[in-house]
């Protein structure tokens, strides 16, 4: 899927000249120097906003994502409330300056769809039935986008939910794999996503081995698709370790005071 429809002219010409086969060189090295099964550098921080009940900041490559969680609190508007459980209100939103050409701040159809699939990726992990008639708000702001923002948004949102003290069955962690330059590759960046053959974002509840988001667009054989899913799951497991570290490190100082 495309993050932007239009790019500045120079960039466009550069992209048009870039064929998929040039994305990975003969030695299996990608444009940014990564190997096919290598994640971009990741940085996660928990509890970064003082007003939100829970929050997280995540960088993955050039993606910069901030998530704030509020609630559970009384659901507004009233009619969205469910008598037997809490609802998650999720907004995935891209800042106007997050991509090369300014994006209108009004929600696009892509934003609407992503907000929905991200919500559905998080819901299985949260004990919604504990808090009937309430709402948990998850605000995901993409401050800078470089491919794979829905996955990075999910990883950060799970951190923010845990930081808010909302009871969860498991964390949720997400990562994409895809096909670029004829090879199955992990964690596609924007250029690889756009020029490459396919992208497969996956979200996982790691302890329960439950896949809570799975999408794909492009062109893959069944075998390639399965290989991409497995590679993405491998990425999820690596990110999960970083996620736990980020959560716990917030409290390490207290731990040391023993």
């Amino acid at each position: 899927m495309k993050v932007t429809k239009k790019k500045p002219k120079k960039e466009r010409e550069k992209m048009a000249n870039k064929k998929s086969e040039k994305l990975i060189d003969k030695k299996g090295i990608r444009l940014d120097g990564r190997k096919v099964d290598e994640l971009r550098p990741v940085k996660m921080d928990v509890g970064v906003l003082s007003n939100a009940d829970g929050s997280a900041y995540l960088e993955q490559g050039r993606n910069k994502i901030l998530v704030g969680v509020y609630g559970p609190k009384e659901a507004h508007p009233r009619h969205i409330a469910k008598q037997d459980r809490a609802v998650i209100q999720c907004r995935y939103h891209m800042a106007p300056f997050s991509v090369d050409e300014r994006k209108s701040p009004a929600p696009s159809r892509r934003d609407v769809e992503l907000s929905k699939v991200i919500r559905e990726a998080l819901e299985p992990a949260v004990f919604l039935e504990y808090y009937p008639r309430t709402s948990i708000q998850v605000y995901i702001e993409i401050l800078q986008a470089d491919g794979g923002t829905r996955c990075a948004g999910i990883t950060a949102a799970a951190l923010a939910l845990a930081d808010a003290g909302i009871p969860m069955r498991d964390l949720v962690v997400a990562c994409a794999a895809g096909k670029a330059g004829g090879k199955i590759a992990l964690d596609l960046m924007d250029t690889e996503d756009k020029v490459g053959e396919a992208d497969v974002p996956v979200a996982l509840m790691p302890n329960l081995n439950a896949i809570t988001l799975l999408q794909m667009d492009g062109n893959l054989s069944v075998d390639e698709f399965n290989a991409a899913v497995d590679m993405a799951l491998g990425g999820c497991k690596k990110l999960y370790e970083l996620q736990k570290e980020a959560l716990k490190s917030k409290y390490v100082s207290a731990e040391e005071a023993k």
Binding site: P167, R169, L171, N207, Q243, K248
Partner: peptide, 20 residues
């Protein structure tokens, strides 16, 4: 220190606060 989803015990135990 544990995080949501961490397996704490298996078998004949009772689940208390902040566990399931």
């Amino acid at each position: 220190l544990v995080a949501p989803g961490d397996l704490l015990a298996e078998g004949d135990y009772v689940s208390g606060d902040s566990t399931y």
